[in-house]
């Protein structure tokens, strides 16, 4: 029986997300542009979370678009379709490094200028605390607390082992709790 990307996406009982990735990546390589839009819908939160852990919030949305555009152009270089998640996560991390390399000074200023909205000032404060944590913890914590992913989802999409994600979550949460003791109202 021929299984289409739509069927896999509509099926909530599909145990492995990688099966969807594989079908979508192949569909895109066969000329289906809509397939890439589906991949974007699936993986944009992951890329958003990875960037949020590293670059100013105001730049994140534009960078997400750039990363997916880059991924579309380079999709033919992906050897294993099931590795789309770890592949795009790596692109996002590299792009964040490039961003800091290219615009060291202007980024910090623009973030401060735009961050005058009081509505989410507390969220930004906590986000800064998370950003001060070691890299392995901050990414996992943001994906869990900001993007709302579960541990198994984080493991599946980033390519990390479930054990690593679990350790990162618990140690990161412990550190965050310690640091939140200095923040009022939380």
């Amino acid at each position: 029986m021929y299984v289409t990307a739509d069927m896999l996406l509509m099926n909530p009982e599909q145990p492995q997300e990688t099966a969807v990735e594989v079908v979508l990546v192949r569909a895109v390589l066969d000329g289906d542009r809509d397939g890439f839009a589906r991949l974007y819908d699936l993986y944009a939160p992951l890329v958003h979370g990875i960037l949020l852990a590293r670059v100013p919030r105001a730049e994140v949305d534009d960078l997400v678009q750039d990363i997916f555009l880059h991924a579309f152009r380079k999709l033919h270089t992906l050897r294993e379709a099931s590795s789309f998640g770890p592949w795009i996560a790596m692109i996002a991390r590299n792009r964040a490094v490039d961003y800091h390399r290219r615009s060291k000074e202007t980024v910090e200023i623009s973030d401060e200028v735009r961050g005058t909205d009081t509505h989410d000032s507390k969220a930004k404060e906590i986000l800064e605390l998370i950003r001060s944590l070691p890299e392995a913890y901050r990414e996992t914590l943001i994906l869990r607390l900001v993007e709302g992913m579960t541990g198994p989802e984080i493991a599946a999409r980033t390519g990390l082992t479930a054990a690593s994600v679990r350790v990162n979550l618990h140690r990161g949460m412990k550190l965050l709790r310690e640091r939140l003791g200095f923040v009022e109202g939380v």
Binding site: H48, A123, K124, I142, E147, G148
Partner: peptide, 9 residues
């Protein structure tokens, strides 16, 4: 989760 949800994608 509630506070940081404001920053969600």
């Amino acid at each position: 989760e509630e506070i940081l949800g404001a920053l969600r994608y």
